[in-house]
Design a protein around this nucleic acid. Structure first.
Lengths: 125, 125
DNA sequence: AAATTTAATGATATTGGTTATCAATAACAA
DNA sequence: TTGTTATTGATAACCAATATCATTAAATTT
């Protein structure tokens, strides 16, 4: 989960952390980079810090539309994605989703990913 | 879903169709391309034909590890993915997964995506 | 069976997200 | 303060996927 080498608390790490930790809209690395444009941070550092925060269990990822998006909500949950505006919303997992099935018995489950795709109320017009 | 213009039944379309239609291992476009190497088919045509088969509802896609994989099973189902060997297995959706939740009420749901990630029996040693 | 139309093909350039490289910098320890 | 080394920033490289475009070949018409 966390790296062996000690993690240094650079100002760039704090910048990325503070920029992403309260976001509920699942920003991409480029979104965070643009938000931090005034600070002179490099795009590679944004990618690296976001990846290290995922390693540390501070963020989770949502892959959508061939881009990695970041989510500070780390407890198990599901997503609603609007295929028009591409907005992603965190929602609760349905009860009983983890009931065992025959096939899952042979698996050592680490993670669940549940997404409904559709059209959000704003885009239904 | 399907295109307006008439679809021509080229030999390349048949090649890609026959190469993917019975696969249960969720191949990538490159996998299909390599299987068809002896035929002289171009990589762009493989991508195009797979995309058109998805358009036509003959295939579904599974995005994993930054690659699109193709699945001839088009009825709603879930996936088990082994994060060691990257094998993907089709499994049944749990009963009652589509029960409405408050958040989903405002959504027009088109698609469900459910994946468990873990370690398959072969990779547990 | 030609001739015609135009979708499809194949080679390859391009795109776009992401990662690798590496000299310079700065965080932390001594 | 000095030394060690993880981190940074600029940018090259990577790679799946798409766009471009002259050529080919299905499907239709004559």
């Amino acid at each position: 989960m966390s790296k062996n080498s000690p993690r240094r608390f650079t100002k760039q790490r704090r910048l990325v952390h503070d920029a992403v930790i309260h976001r509920v809209d699942h920003p991409t690395a480029k979104d965070i980079f643009h938000e931090l444009k005034g600070t002179g941070i490099g795009i590679a550092t944004v990618y690296r810090q976001l990846a290290s925060m995922v390693e540390d269990g501070i963020l989770t990822t949502v892959d959508y539309d061939n881009e990695t998006r970041y989510d500070p909500l780390t407890s198990p949950h599901a997503h609603l994605i609007c295929s028009i505006c591409n907005k992603i919303k965190d929602i609760e997992l349905p009860k009983g989703i983890d009931n065992l099935t025959p096939e899952k018995l042979s698996f050592e489950i680490n993670e669940i990913e549940l997404t409904w795709k559709g059209i959000c109320d704003d885009c239904q017009n």
